[in-house]
Design a protein around this nucleic acid. Structure first.
Length: 291
DNA sequence: CGGCGGTCCTGTCAGC
DNA sequence: TGCTGACAGGACCGCC
């Protein structure tokens, strides 16, 4: 689920809960992820104070004292949960060390990492499909890190402009949708928001990027920011007792105009929304409105 | 180098 | 019911 807005939401929620707390212990429950979790996390981060939580591309960065950053990526199915000391667990749950709360049930499967903080709260990293990752970097060297040295433009940075977008598109002989989703060019836009952005921009997802006009790029630029901002706003408003990365609690999906709406009427012209595959991923669009 | 397809992994759901 | 295959919001790797 996590594209830029979801990761941003998780980061904000996390920071509110864990900033200025000290890590007491890190337990690796299952190191098997896209990259195995490094075994030295506890020795490196124990007794370090958390200074801030930041988003970089679709990654979560937990910065601590000692120039260290814990990097987390949610992959397709990753979640971060914070249980505070007041979270009520029954005896059986305590016994089983069940920490992952979802849809009013505690779930024990697929927890990979547990971080205990000085106030008694616990951060859990949970990832069913194991496409996520957890690793460590020096904060001062984060931009040179293997995960980030080939990263594209941040949509909310000043580098992201209609002109720059036009420049990027002009050189690519592939669909505008796959360029939007290419993290080595622009970070944060995934399969859902790519469809949404192109619908609002009235551009067909199969258009070759190189054929887009300056005006097209202006539309895409404007709607990218607009949609990402709206989604962050929608996500932020649902943050209450714990941090979550799933779409089950009144997220932006209520505002999807095309994603997952195959055969439903286009909100503008009432034509049926169509679904196609591009590079193995589903794309949703309106044939009539998007050219 | 650019573009594309395969692949990592588990859960869910439609269809038989 | 139970089985099977398709598919799921990400990103890397290797091939042409």
């Amino acid at each position: 689920m996590p594209e830029l807005p979801e990761v941003e939401t998780v980061c904000r929620g996390l920071e509110a809960k864990i900033k200025n707390h000290t890590i007491k212990e890190i337990k690796i429950l299952n190191p098997k992820l896209r990259i195995p979790i490094p075994s030295n996390l506890n020795s490196k981060l124990k007794n370090k104070k958390i200074l801030q939580v930041k988003r970089k591309a679709k990654y979560i960065l937990i910065e601590t004292e000692g120039d260290l950053s814990l990097i987390m990526h949610l992959g397709m199915s990753g979640r971060v949960v914070v249980l505070d000391p007041n979270t009520k667990l029954n005896a059986e749950q305590k016994l089983e060390k069940i920490f992952y709360y979802h849809q009013e049930k505690f779930i024990i499967k697929h927890n990979h990492l547990q971080i205990n903080l000085d106030d008694g709260s616990t951060i859990i990293f949970n990832d069913t499909r194991k496409f996520g990752l957890v690793t460590l970097s020096k904060s001062s060297e984060i931009n040179q890190h293997k995960l980030f040295c080939k990263s594209g433009i941040e949509p909310f940075s000043s580098d992201f402009s209609a002109t720059k977008l036009h420049e990027i598109f002009a050189k690519r002989n592939k669909s505008v949708k796959s360029v939007l989703m290419d993290a080595s060019l622009i970070v944060g836009i995934g399969n859902i928001y790519a469809s949404e952005i192109l619908f609002r921009s009235r551009i067909h997802p199969e258009r070759l990027a190189s054929t887009l006009s300056a005006k097209n790029c202006k539309e895409i630029h404007k709607h990218s920011l607009e949609i990402l901002e709206e989604a962050i706003k929608a996500g932020g408003s649902t943050l209450k007792d714990y941090v979550h990365a799933d779409g089950n609690l009144g997220y932006f999906q209520n505002n999807f105009q095309v994603y997952d709406r195959e055969s439903h009427p286009c909100l503008i012209c009432k034509s049926k929304i169509q679904s196609i595959k591009q590079n193995g991923r589903s794309t949703f669009f309106c044939v009539k409105c998007q050219k």
